[in-house]
Design a protein around this nucleic acid. Structure first.
Lengths: 156, 156
DNA sequence: CACTAATATATGGTATAACATGGGATTTAT
DNA sequence: ATAAATCCCATGTTATACCATATATTAGTG
């Protein structure tokens, strides 16, 4: 049993004409500890696909049940947007998932996909878009040198 | 045995002239873990049908019992609307349920139904209405949460 | 250190099983 | 008795599990 569950590194894989992509073996190893499937959805913050284990969404569902009002408009909006967009993807014996056209189109991915680790989740990018995005992020981080402030309550 | 019980994704299915619709297989797999039937009712917040497992309503009932407003007019109204409207639907051997005219009319569904995952529950929409609703939600959520805004240059 | 062998991973293609959907038969209500 | 609901079977379509080859990575050896 692993002690850590982090998606790391940046891996480039091919997408065949059916939309199949190999999930990087490192990622697979993590996912397999928990299940045989991952969840993907259109990122809310960038033109890319985002993926995670279903446990992430499960936690989100519980949090929402307990925090927001059952009948609130805000809860309604968020649950539609997130759960309505998210889809389970099981990988075959060779470790591939079949991405949908909706996702591929949103991320502008055709024949090549870039997997970018983000810790508890990961992103899938079109190569050119990712190159630009990485440059942008680096420039911004160097300019601002932001401190990583943790919420005090969670940091005892 | 599954570890998670989330209704996800957006699935379009046909409604035949008897009013029968296939419950998406993913949804069925979840429901079957608990029972052979689902509960549907007219949504309180949107012109669509809402569905869930009976356990969900059970939880709602408990929550209301424990709430401070047990005798409030508001709770009385809500419980009347939901429990009074909710109806159990069993699915046949091919996984179809027979929706009632009352529900179909309320959602404006004729020959096509869109199933939208909402985590612990799901919604059933008329296709055109859902298209509009999704656009509205995306706009609203992104407006209210500046941190979720997409980079405009990459998204055109 | 270079070269080869062995293993693991990625990619391409095909067969199979699962699913949605239509039609009809049997049963249940009114 | 009539209509409605439920069940059962048949079919076209599509996703997915499986097999085969190619590429890359690691380990082994002279």
């Amino acid at each position: 049993m692993r002690k850590t569950f982090l998606f790391l590194d940046t891996i480039v894989n091919k997408v065949d004409n059916k939309g199949r992509v190999s999930l990087p073996s490192d990622y697979r190893a993590i996912v397999k500890e928990l299940s045989t499937e991952i969840v993907c959805y259109r990122s809310l913050t960038a033109p890319c696909i985002e993926g995670c284990c279903e446990e992430m969404l499960e936690k989100l569902a519980s949090d929402m049940e307990n925090s927001l009002d059952f009948f609130s408009q805000e809860q309604d909006n968020l649950t539609n947007l997130i759960f309505g967009d998210a889809k389970r993807f099981t990988f075959d014996s060779t470790g591939r998932i079949l991405l949908t056209d909706k996702l591929l189109q949103y991320a502008g991915i055709t024949d090549t996909a870039v997997f970018v680790g983000k810790g508890r989740k990961f992103q899938i990018w079109n190569p050119e878009n990712w190159e630009k995005e990485e440059a942008r992020i680096r420039a911004e981080v160097l300019k601002n040198r932001p401190s990583l402030k943790l919420p005090e309550k969670n940091n005892g």
